[in-house]
Amino acid sequence: MDKIIESIKSLFTNPDFVPIMLFLLAFVIFTFKFWGISLSRGISRITGQARTGLERIDSQKLRNQWQLERIGVQQNKYYRVYSLMLSGVIESYGLRNMTVFKFNVLFAMVGVIATAASIWFTENIVLALMIALPTVAAIFAAIVAGSKSRVRALNLNVMTFLDNVCPLMPKGLISAFEDSINVAHPSIRPHIQTTLNKIKVQGVPVRVAMTELAEKLGITFTDFAQKAIIFEEDQQEGAAESFMDITEVNKSTRINMINNEKLFSKVNTDMYGRVGVIAFVCLLANFYGMTSEFMRTTFLGQLTNSLTIFCCILIFVVSQLMQVGMDLSKELRRGDRV
């Protein structure tokens, strides 16, 4: 296998490779033009068929999952955490056409590319896998961590808006929104303005408009949306006072978020410190002293370098995913009790 890798690598590094590939490309383009074959149409047809096939498989998996849930068959706990994590990532980045299955397919492709690149540089499959697999996991962990930050920022913006709206609810939902819209963060203000236009101009029912707004602003807004729908439909006296409970919940939520942020900040600091020490020692061993030649030229030295990279990436991945997994496990336990 190593000889095959070396042969492929020598082929790509050959000075004649680029001119030959350019000649073949020109020949293919000329052939397609001469016979009147539309290359773009063929590529579009192939990609369309691949997309249709993926969507068919995705729909079938979702249907099977729905049928299993109807008869009381629950998913594996760890797969539920993983699915909930991916669903949060997709929602936070606004990837409307993305699903958990498509996300898995995308990362499988990233894994193949990372493995091929690692094999190219290390010329050893074992070492390549030790680098490629944790690298893909690190990319996934970084995306999840970024999603967590986006969700946290959205929740804070929504809570700040609700803290201004709730005391004004005795005047009515529309009036409270209009008086507070200037306080809303620019990231959520367009959604609120769209909801106001739907209710006032288009005549969309409050239930429909608030349900759509809750889907955009997330779980922090859901409780308020449900109370607002009941308040607008029933018009009961004294019902507006119940909205002040939301402000109290927001206060406790902020305290919990601050405590979690302090804890996670300490965990991240410790993690970066460990990774930094390991990487520093590895660099010293590779470029200074008696071990430098051994580490860079022998298989055992390359294996040690690969293990070091593996450990550094693994520490980062475990640290980030544990932070997200703690919150998701709490949500799952809360959902199970309900």
Results as ranks from 00 to 15, higher is better:
Gly218Ser: 06
Thr47Arg: 10
Leu213Gly: 06
Lys216Ile: 11
Glu55Thr: 07
Gly273His: 06
Gly53Lys: 02
Leu129Asp: 05
Glu232Cys: 04
Asn286His: 01
Ser180Leu: 05
Val281Asn: 01
Ile229Pro: 05
Met85Trp: 15
Asp223His: 08
Ile315Asn: 09
Leu307Thr: 02
Ala240Tyr: 02
Thr222Gln: 14
Ala153Asp: 15
Arg334Tyr: 11
Gly273Lys: 09
Pro19Leu: 10
Gly172Asp: 03
Asp223Met: 09
Gly42Pro: 08
Pro167Asn: 00
Thr194Pro: 05
Glu261Tyr: 11
Ala225Trp: 07
Val89Asp: 11
Ile181Thr: 09
Phe280Thr: 14
Gln65Tyr: 08
Phe264Glu: 06
Gln67Gly: 09
Tyr93Leu: 15
Arg70His: 13
Met210Ala: 04
Glu6Cys: 02
Ile4Phe: 15
Cys311Ile: 08
Val100Phe: 07
Ser306Asp: 01
Ile57Phe: 15
Gln302Met: 03
Arg334Thr: 08
Arg152Glu: 15
Leu84Asn: 15
Ser319Phe: 00
Ser7Gly: 13
Ile4Gly: 09
Val126Gly: 00
Met130Ala: 00
Phe101Lys: 03
Thr297Tyr: 06
Leu196Tyr: 12
Ile71Gln: 13
Phe121Asp: 02
Thr13Ser: 14
Val89Lys: 12
Gly172Phe: 03
Ser242Cys: 03
Arg51Trp: 15
Ile219Leu: 03
Val136Glu: 13
Thr247Pro: 01
Ala116Gly: 08
Pro190Trp: 10
Gly203Cys: 06
Asn97Thr: 14
Val151Leu: 06
Ile43Pro: 00
Val249Asp: 08
Gly146Thr: 08
Gln65Met: 08
Val110Ile: 09
Pro15Glu: 12
Arg274Lys: 07
Gly172Ile: 04
Met210Ile: 04
Tyr93His: 14
Ala228Tyr: 02
Ser329Met: 15
Gly335Thr: 12
Ala116Phe: 09
Phe101Asp: 04
Leu168His: 04
Val73Asp: 01
Gly48Leu: 02
Thr253Glu: 06
Phe221His: 10
Leu307Ser: 07
Gly111Ser: 11
Phe12Gly: 07
Arg296Trp: 06
Leu332Arg: 13
Asp327Ser: 12
Asn305Ala: 11
Trp66Ala: 13
Val201Cys: 02
Ala214Asp: 05
Glu178Pro: 06
Ala138Glu: 10
Asp327Pro: 01
Phe30Pro: 04
Pro15Asn: 07
Lys3Thr: 10
Arg80Thr: 12
Pro205Thr: 05
Leu86Phe: 10
Ile278Asn: 00
Thr253Ala: 08
Val324His: 14
